[in-house]
């Protein structure tokens, strides 16, 4: 059997798959096969999904309590929407996120805290406040971010943003082979992170669905996600209610949960390990179900036919 887009047999490529290892984030060690849910908490007035619901700090902390109660292993705090819009400078980004991350840390000493930022200045401030992971969706736009991760012993997400600048929309983006480009870019960033001193068991890769990609591209990287997991790096997917789901099903953000969960199931099947999501409880169920189908996780309780 050959890969649809190339002559290299799929089985050969996957046969070379590196072993997935333990992923360390904060104090936690996540073995391969354990699905990790990252709950999104936006400190923004203008994110695309349920805008401004956690702009207020009290509401944001309520949201943190909820995602943790729903089974999130990681809380991902962001102060800037991915889409273009009102400028948020470094000082404002830090004002929105660092103090809040400090508050989460004092309430939850052991929860893994991720900060969604591309800027090293923000990275430094959030790490000082207790962040464990720097989630850079913009593909290493600020190369100093890796140095900050290394300095604080934090993890780093190495994402493919199609070499776009932060907060820009894809404009007539084309790839000879989008997955090949993703693999090249994320592995380049991972090597840079290693060279900067980020521990290898704290480096995560992310195809960054919809970043520098049209809907066809995001569907393709979903379909071929096994090629990312075959690198051996833990793979993060951020699919939640995104436009590729919306365009595929012709649905507005608030109706994209089933499509999101379908994409989640496919990525889980292909071995993705971290799932960045808005709807934690629903995602947790899908991820655990797929883990059981894969054979990575036993059923919670099996009795039928065994008594």
């Amino acid at each position: 059997m050959t890969d649809r887009l190339g002559s290299e047999p799929m089985t050969d490529r996957l046969a070379q798959a590196a072993q997935q290892g333990v992923l360390r984030l904060g104090n936690r060690a996540f073995p391969p096969g354990q699905g990790i849910v990252m709950g999104i908490v936006n400190r923004t007035p203008d994110s695309f999904f349920r805008p401004a619901v956690t702009w207020d700090e009290t509401a944001a902390m309520e949201r943190v309590h909820q995602v943790i109660a729903d089974g999130a292993d990681i809380v991902d705090v962001g102060g800037i929407p991915a889409a273009p819009g009102a400028e948020v400078d470094v000082a404002e980004e830090i004002r929105r996120t660092a103090g809040f991350i400090g508050a989460i840390r004092s309430t939850y000493p052991d929860i893994v805290i991720s900060a969604d930022t591309w800027r090293h200045e923000t990275g430094r401030a959030v790490c000082e406040a207790g962040a464990d992971l720097l989630n850079d969706s913009w593909g290493g736009h600020d190369p100093l971010l890796a140095d900050v991760a290394a300095e604080f012993g934090a993890g780093l997400v190495c994402a493919h943003a199609g070499r776009q600048n932060p907060r820009t929309r894809p404009f007539r983006v084309a790839y000879a082979d989008v997955m090949a480009d993703v693999l090249d870019q994320v592995q380049l960033l991972a090597r840079r992170a290693l060279a900067a001193g980020v521990p290898s068991d704290r480096i995560v890769i992310d195809a960054a669905h919809d970043f520098g990609k049209n809907t066809w591209h995001s569907l393709e990287v979903t379909r071929r996600l096994a090629e990312m997991t075959a690198t051996g790096y833990p793979v993060l997917v951020s699919l939640s209610n995104k436009d590729f789901v919306g365009e595929t099903l012709n649905l507005p953000p608030e109706q994209r949960l089933p499509g999101t969960l379908a994409a989640t199931a496919i990525c889980a099947w292909h071995g993705a390990r971290i799932f960045r999501v808005h709807q934690v409880a629903e995602s947790r169920q899908v991820i655990d179900m797929v883990a059981a189908i894969r054979g990575d996780r036993p059923p919670a309780r099996a009795v039928r036919g065994l008594a």
């Binding site: 036993p298 919670a300 309780r301 099996a302 009795v303 065994l306 008594a307």
Partner: peptide
């Protein structure tokens, strides 16, 4: 001698 006497067959719950 039910299968569920084997601990690993009942999943996470010892049952």
């Amino acid at each position: 001698a039910p299968p569920l006497l084997a601990r690993e067959l009942t999943g996470a719950d010892p049952v």
